[in-house]
Amino acid sequence: MHLQHSPEVWAEYPELVAGALFVTGITADVSAESRIAAYTAIAESRLADGPETGFPEIQAWRRVFSRMGLKPTQYRCASEALLRRFRKEGVLPRIHPLIDLCNAISLAFAIPVAAIDLSRVSKGLDVRHADGDEVYQTFSGETEHPDAGEVIFTDAAGRAHARRWTNRQSGYSAVRDTTATVLIVTEAMHDTASADVPELVAAVTGELGRVWGSTPQSAVLSRSTPRFEFPA
């Protein structure tokens, strides 16, 4: 299997830095609460100095969304949406230990982190502009078709696993209690992304080892190294 961004995406967004981790052995019967607390404390500290809209990581994604023709206050990248909810409510709902941990790390770094159940993915994932006939399933089970030209995560079966790039994942491949094999993807656009994304990948790697005893296969992607290959 693979993860890769299309040449067109790299040409339009050369500032992109992406990280990816392939991991097996994920289960739901673990506790990650102490690790979640450590990362949410970092987010709390950052938010104490001002709202997430002032973070360079968030501002960079807002500029990208504007370039994609999307209103940034209507369609937010996943990390901004999480930070906004956390700032208002002081806590995030618990879903699954892996999702909860990835959300906490996303809060701390202010960078989107997606976890995708690979048993629901056909052959691999391409981040590219949509043709418009791909199939996307919402978390409520409804079917949508991405707009032509929209940046999506799609597989060989024509299924979209994320819409509007880092805005919304698909319910079809969301991590659930039966999930065992996962692809974790993080993407950033800000000036220090080339340093921050490897640091985030290292943080996720460490937590996967601490909580699940797993050693992931990982990569940091750029225009010169755009493809990450991992076992089917």
Rank of each mutant, 00 (worst) to 15 (best):
T73A: 15
S119C: 03
T138R: 06
R227W: 00
F230I: 00
I152S: 09
L125R: 07
L200Q: 09
A78Y: 07
R164H: 03
V182F: 04
F109D: 13
Y75E: 08
D49V: 02
A188I: 05
G124E: 08
E144N: 06
D100W: 08
H96G: 13
I111L: 08
I26Q: 07
H2S: 14
P146Y: 01
T192Q: 14
L221D: 11
E15Y: 06
E8S: 07
T215W: 00
R163K: 12
A114G: 00
K71D: 12
R164D: 05
N167Y: 13
G206I: 06
I42M: 03
A32C: 13
P56Q: 10
R84I: 03
L107C: 15
A203Q: 11
D177N: 04
T205A: 10
G25Y: 07
L101C: 02
D29Q: 13
Y39P: 06
E52T: 10
F153V: 01
A11L: 11
T181E: 04
H2C: 06
P198K: 13
L200M: 14
S218V: 01
L125Q: 02
A130Q: 08
A157K: 01
H5C: 04
W212P: 00
V113I: 15
N167P: 01
C77V: 14
P56G: 15
A37E: 10
A20N: 04
Q217W: 02
S106F: 10
A156D: 06
S106D: 12
P146V: 04
A202V: 14
D133W: 11
R46G: 07
D133N: 12
S222E: 03
A232H: 05
F230W: 06
E12I: 03
A38Q: 11
V182D: 04
F55V: 14
R168G: 01
L16F: 11
L107P: 10
Y39V: 15
M189D: 09
A180R: 05
I42V: 14
G209Q: 10
A104F: 09
K71S: 09
T40L: 07
E80R: 11
S31D: 15
A37L: 12
S106C: 09
K71H: 11
R35G: 12
G213I: 13
A188L: 08
I36K: 08
K123E: 11
A104H: 12
T166W: 03
T143I: 08
A110S: 06
S122F: 00
I58A: 09
K123G: 00
G209L: 11
G206M: 12
F228W: 02
D133S: 08
R63W: 11
A162P: 08
F228Q: 01
I95H: 14
R120P: 03
